[in-house]
């Protein structure tokens, strides 16, 4: 808990001071402004104050939900984040759900058909997809299914087709969850209480669902935090490839535009989300498994 707070603070500090280490202020650009205007702008954005004061002012503003305005468009960044995150959150949410459900099912199948054909096939696929970067997968999917075969239309604001972006985002976490579920399922299937249950004559399916799966899923919970981080960073490129106007593609555009307040705000926003996801998955982990205690 304390670590999470410290992390958020450090992220803010890194972002802020890193951005201020960039040579050249935001206003000495193409046109030479007259000194009075620069002074007024500097005062408006508190650039005349010492750096540390600026930092704490910035923190105060963020806490109040005020991220400042974008240098490129002049719009309020808070509003931009709000509307674009709605799209990203939906996409990411579907991808996360798909990855978890498909990963657990495939992992169970692999564990139950150990060393037979389905297991081999699943292991092969999951190994393959851990080696494919999300941007490669995204562009290849776009190429094959949208352009060459034209089965799935390209994303547009009016018609949102989540299928391909979700696949591109979910494949890697799915492959990981599959492997995780498989190992913990195999582990749980070898436990004494499973043998006892079978010996008592409990039906096989009931044993799998009631005795094995419930214990085997605990490691999956710990992966949810990293998975959220992966999906958020993955969405940077996937949204870009499919030209989805979510937070990820806004972030990339702001990088290529060198729109510093926007970069800062999105970094902090995404970082806080990731830290929160980690914290929550840790807490759930602790709640689900009483054997775990944190020191």
């Amino acid at each position: 808990m304390l670590l999470a707070l410290a992390t958020v603070f450090i992220i803010c500090a890194i972002t802020f001071f890193a951005m201020h280490a960039i040579p050249g202020g935001p206003f000495n650009k193409e046109k030479a402004l007259d000194p009075a205007t620069i002074a007024a702008l500097n005062e408006r954005f508190h650039l005349d104050k010492p750096l540390l004061t600026q930092f704490f002012l910035y923190l105060k503003n963020i806490a109040a939900g005020d991220f400042g305005v974008s240098l490129k468009t002049g719009r309020d960044i808070g509003a931009i984040i709000k509307e674009s995150f709605a799209i990203s959150a939906k996409l990411g949410g579907i991808a996360a759900a798909a990855a978890i459900v498909a990963g657990i099912i495939l992992g169970c199948i692999a564990a139950l058909t150990r060393n037979r054909l389905p297991d081999r096939l699943i292991v092969f696929i999951s190994t393959l997809f851990t080696a494919v970067p999300s941007f490669v997968l995204a562009t290849l999917l776009l190429l094959v299914f949208s352009i060459t075969l034209a089965w799935v239309p390209v994303w547009s604001a009016a018609e949102r087709h989540y299928l391909l972006p979700v696949i591109a985002l979910a494949m890697y976490p799915m492959a990981y969850i599959t492997r995780l579920t498989k190992t913990s399922m195999l582990d749980a299937l070898g436990q004494d209480y499973v043998r006892t249950a079978r010996a008592k004559g409990v039906r096989r399916l009931l044993v799998i669902f009631k005795h094995t799966l419930r214990n085997a899923l605990i490691p999956v919970i710990t992966y949810v935090g990293p998975m959220v981080a992966y999906i958020l960073t993955g969405s940077l490129v996937v949204e870009n490839v499919f030209t989805i106007g979510g937070l990820g593609s806004k972030f990339i555009t702001s990088i290529s535009n060198r729109d510093y307040p926007m970069i800062m705000a999105t970094t902090i926003f995404l970082a806080v989300l990731m830290v929160l996801a980690n914290l929550i998955s840790d807490l759930i982990y602790k709640a689900v498994d009483p054997r775990i205690t944190f020191d």
Binding site: L3, L232, F251
Partner: peptide, 12 residues
């Protein structure tokens, strides 16, 4: 370790 690596990498 707790820092989101990819974001910090992009930023840096």
């Amino acid at each position: 370790y707790a820092l989101p690596d990819m974001l910090i990498i992009i930023l840096l």
